[in-house]
Design a binder for these strands. Structure first.
Length: 857
RNA sequence: GCCCAAGUGGCGGAAUGGUAGACGCAGGGGAUUCAAAAUCCCCCGGUCGAAAGAUCGUGUCGGUUCGAGUCCGACCUUGGGCACCA
């Protein structure tokens, strides 16, 4: 009998699909369309097992939808701009462009043998001038509509390398390459007005029924709508022009517990004070030495500097509060100034205790719930109940004595407005999206700076503004900045000597509209409306949970901006109808330390495992950090090519789906690949036997075919709900049933054909082979998905467990449609129940038809 | 620090509030074989027991319910995100 030889059959069927043009997306016929998209990869160099898992999931959906009669669009491309290419150029002297395109070549060569049903004719990379030129056109359209503007913003500045650092390039406040202390520096940068869409982006989350709730929650929290009071304190002894300090608070009901006012080190007042006060200048400078990330600010020790200025309490002008400059206050949020109420905010309480400021409790637990409440001023923790909880106000000034935080908030706002102390406002945490990057390897921002005309947009006919190739990375800083022939251009407006913008775009811009470009990847405009109108939206988007906030939020903004500028229909404002976030593939990190004690990472293939220890080829022992997110910078990536070489693509595909639920992280182990391979060989063998079977006894036909219909039903449901591992478990069970079946040859062949079809989204090559072996018509990719016959799935009798006091003690087999009273009678007659009752009457009998019987004694 | 998840046998995991551990891996035993590989069959959460069975058991502690892995509250641990990694 022939053996399962993936190395022969996989290329054969890939050629057959290619010849038939099976996977080219076409707008033909009256079939419904289906657009399935996996988040496109960064061309890091080689594909890793996480890619295999991600694209196999998308391929299962794509192939299933194809089999259920859809025109499927399933494209692939590369998110090709970004820092690693520049880092590689700096490390080894090559060019980012060469590095990137070489990597793309390699990765395409590695992906094709996996047999994904991708329309490769639509492939592009975001670093193709044809792509980023259209992105520049979008930028100009956005600029015209006022969706882009310039303002100052701070960046991490490395004073030795003379370059801007990404947050991940800052380690313990020092530049990763130079080790120099990082400074915050303010630059004029480009911003998208995403915050204008805060409310809409938040409210529209409710319409995304097929998105995971956790992603919607994360986005909602990120956008962060809050209701509060904005008002001004009048100052005492403040410099001129600072008669008032505007603050924003979400807890105006705690105004009588105010203890101090805090302003950001970047607040205009702090900036004014540092001019004449060296101590304040030093404190502010110290604060600015911290990185720009929110995480770093929050984790840092909370510190303040007493400015000596005070403010008057709005309700009692004889009551003065000190004004501190505090390192934990963000200039970007609210007004950059707050009042602190230590009794009801742990951070404020820590601050008050540190600087010996008064603590005044405003509210306490409601009557009857005081319990062991310790007043914050008597050493207790800050009392911060949920705003929906009713509390008792001790120092309230508006509304009832007992009310919820929410009620008190509104009452306080109403009271303050009436008193002329500020007004209620709704604010959002979401900030505008800074897109300027002081780097070479990104999409050039298509504007020119002219001394007379100011900021001048490039003319669209000059697009794309291509990156110059003749650059080097041996000098610190952005090569575009020191490239005279590229940088120095005439003003598009007046023709005078001018300078091209040398900042490039954030790579999130590239990935915020690629899904739209896939609908017409060669169009002369960003989109072709006929194509976009047909193919949008993405029916199923699949990607990592790490993109839950930024990428997905930016894309939602871009879809709206592209609608405003005429590039997408309004129906595409929410571009992703359904989202599935697959878990990550994790893997141990292998690291050593360099002379300065900084970690140096090593690829798994460069590490030799001996027992629980690991060593480099030169014998150096390597530290193993278990189970971390796979990341190119940490080098803990697994190369699936060897798996494919050894076992074939179908085994790799089957294995990544079978071993773990798709939304959960999976720790890569090679152990299961062998088992997956054995199973596929077994399926091949069983199908071969079925193909040759001459058994004429039809005794077991019904049993087998009933099993088959149940399997069709469960696998279909599994595939539709991303329960791939459960679907595969069902296919294992059905394979066992087929192998043991005492059925006739015809029934076995039918069952084997259905098995091949049900497996075909996961193991398409093997399935084609079996299909042709079993006399299937045409290609299996063109065969319609099998349908389960409901009549074949009902059982005549059911087994009911009997519980006594909720614990299973026995079971009975009863006809499926036996009525409740009869079931109860049968159950009570069971000897285990009789014994448990011991002559007494049951207290209660619960009968859930078809499910369970519970006897309470 | 803040936001969001996850936690079930030796391992990966299954389970519309209704028989916890499907299916697979590893392990043990057997068949086949001159022998092996491959294949096939059986067993496989802990404790007690010869067995029948009993009893405990889904990170920890409480709660709701006739019934909780599933719902609620608190905690612990691990992971993701925190706006210049992509």
């Amino acid at each position: 009998m022939a053996r399962y030889t993936p190395a022969e059959i996989e290329p054969k069927w890939q050629d057959a699909w290619h010849e038939a043009g099976s996977f080219e997306a076409r707008r033909t016929g009256d079939k419904p369309k289906y657009y399935v998209l996996e988040m496109f990869p960064y061309p890091s160099g080689r594909i890793h097992i996480g890619h295999v898992r991600n694209y196999t999931m998308g391929d299962v959906v794509a192939r299933y939808k194809r089999a259920t009669g859809h025109n499927v669009l399933h494209p692939m491309g590369f998110d090709a701009f970004g820092m690693p290419a520049e880092n590689a150029a700096m490390a080894s002297g090559g060019h980012p462009k060469t590095w990137t395109y070489d990597n793309i070549d390699t990765m395409v060569k590695q992906m094709k043998p996996l047999g994904f049903s991708l329309d490769w004719s639509r492939m592009f990379a975001t670093c193709d001038p044809e792509y980023y030129g259209q992105q520049q056109a979008l930028f100009l359209d956005f600029l015209e509509k006022g969706l882009v503007y310039r303002k100052n913003a701070v960046v991490n500045w490395d004073p030795v390398d003379m370059t801007v650092l990404a947050n991940e390039q800052v380690e313990d406040g020092r530049g990763w390459r130079s080790g120099a202390l990082v400074e915050r520096r303010e630059l004029t940068q480009w911003f998208f007005r995403i915050s204008d869409y805060s409310e809409e982006l938040l409210d529209a989350l409710d319409t995304l029924d097929d998105w995971p709730a956790k992603v919607k929650t994360m986005q909602a929290n990120w956008i962060g709508r809050s209701r509060g009071l904005q008002f001004a304190f009048s100052t005492v002894d403040a410099p001129e022009g600072f008669d008032r300090i505007e603050v924003y608070t979400t807890r105006p009901d705690t105004l009588l517990g105010a203890s101090f006012v805090g302003v950001s080190p970047d607040h205009p007042l702090a900036r004014q004070l540092e001019r004449d006060n060296d101590e304040i200048a030093a404190f502010n400078a110290e604060c600015r030495r911290m990185g720009t990330s929110e995480e770093e600010l929050e984790k840092a020790e909370k510190r303040g500097f007493d400015t000596g200025i005070t403010v008057r309490h709005p309700f009692d002008t004889s009551w003065e509060l000190p004004v501190y400059i505090a390192n934990f206050i963000l200039m970007d949020y609210g007004t950059g100034a707050i009042f602190g109420c230590p009794a009801h905010d742990q951070r404020d309480l820590d601050f008050a205790r540190k600087y010996e400021l008064p603590v005044t409790t405003v509210f306490a637990p409601a009557m009857g719930e005081e319990g062991t409440f310790i007043l914050p001023e008597e050493g207790g923790p800050a009392y911060v109940p949920p705003k929906a909880e009713t509390v008792r106000y001790i120092k309230g000034f508006a509304g009832q004595e007992a009310q919820t935080g929410d009620e008190a908030l509104e009452a306080a706002i109403a009271f303050c407005e009436e008193q002329g102390v500020g007004q209620g406002v709704t604010k959002f945490r979401l900030r505008d999206w800074g897109l300027s990057r002081q780097r070479y390897w990104g999409c050039p921002i298509p504007v020119v700076h002219c001394e007379t005309c100011g900021v001048v947009p490039e003319k669209k006919e000059n697009l794309p503004i291509e990156l110059p190739d003749d650059v080097s990375f041996d000098v610190p800083g952005n090569p575009l900045d020191r490239h005279p022939t590229w940088r120095d251009v005439p003003c598009p407006n007046c023709g005078a000597a001018a300078r091209r913008e040398t900042d490039t775009m954030d790579t999130f811009v590239d990935s915020s509209w690629y899904f739209a470009r896939f609908t017409a990847p060669r169009a002369e405009t960003p989109t072709d409306r006929a194509e976009a109108d047909y193919w949008m939206n993405v029916d199923q988007y699949i990607g990592g949970i790490e993109h839950a906030i930024l990428h997905l939020l930016y894309s939602r903004f871009f879809a709206r901006a592209m609608h405003l500028t005429g590039h997408l229909p309004e129906t595409a404002n929410e571009p992703f109808d359904a989202l599935f976030t697959q878990g990550m593939v994790t893997h141990a990190i292998f690291q050593t330390k360099d002379k300065a004690g900084r970690p140096v990472y090593h690829f798994p293939e460069d590490v030799e495992l001996r027992g629980d220890s690991a060593f480099l080829k030169d014998g150096t022992e390597v530290e193993i950090v278990p189970s971390a997110k796979m990341s190119k910078s940490k080098k803990n990536v697994v190369d699936p090519v060897s798996i494919i070489d050894q076992y074939g693509a179908d085994t790799a595909r089957w294995f990544v789906l079978s071993d773990s639920p798709p939304e959960r992280d999976v720790e890569w182990t090679a152990a299961g690949a062998e088992a997956a391979s054995r199973h596929l060989a077994r399926v091949y063998r069983i199908a071969s036997e079925a193909a040759a079977s001459e058994a004429s006894s039809q005794e077991g036909d019904e049993v087998l075919l009933r099993e088959m219909h149940k399997t069709i039903d469960e696998v279909t449901k599994g595939v539709e709900s991303f329960g791939f591992n459960a679907a595969i478990a069902r296919l294992y069970a059905f394979t066992n049933a087929l192998s043991k079946a005492e059925a006739g040859g015809e029934a076995k062949r039918e069952a084997a054909r259905v098995l091949a079809q049900l497996m075909s989204p996961m193991t398409p090559h093997l399935s084609e082979e079996l299909w042709s072996m079993l006399g299937g018509e045409g290609l299996i990719v063109d065969a319609p998905w099998p349908e389960a016959d409901p009549a074949m799935m009902v059982e005549d009798t059911v087994t009911l467990p009997i519980q006594i006091n909720g614990k299973r003690r026995a079971e009975i087999a009863v006809p499926k449609d036996m009525d409740k009273a009869e079931v109860e009678k049968t159950a009570l007659a069971h000897h285990a129940v009789v014994k448990a009752l011991d002559g007494a009457e049951p207290k209660k009998v619960i009968v859930v038809p078809g499910r369970i019987v519970n006897v309470v004694v």
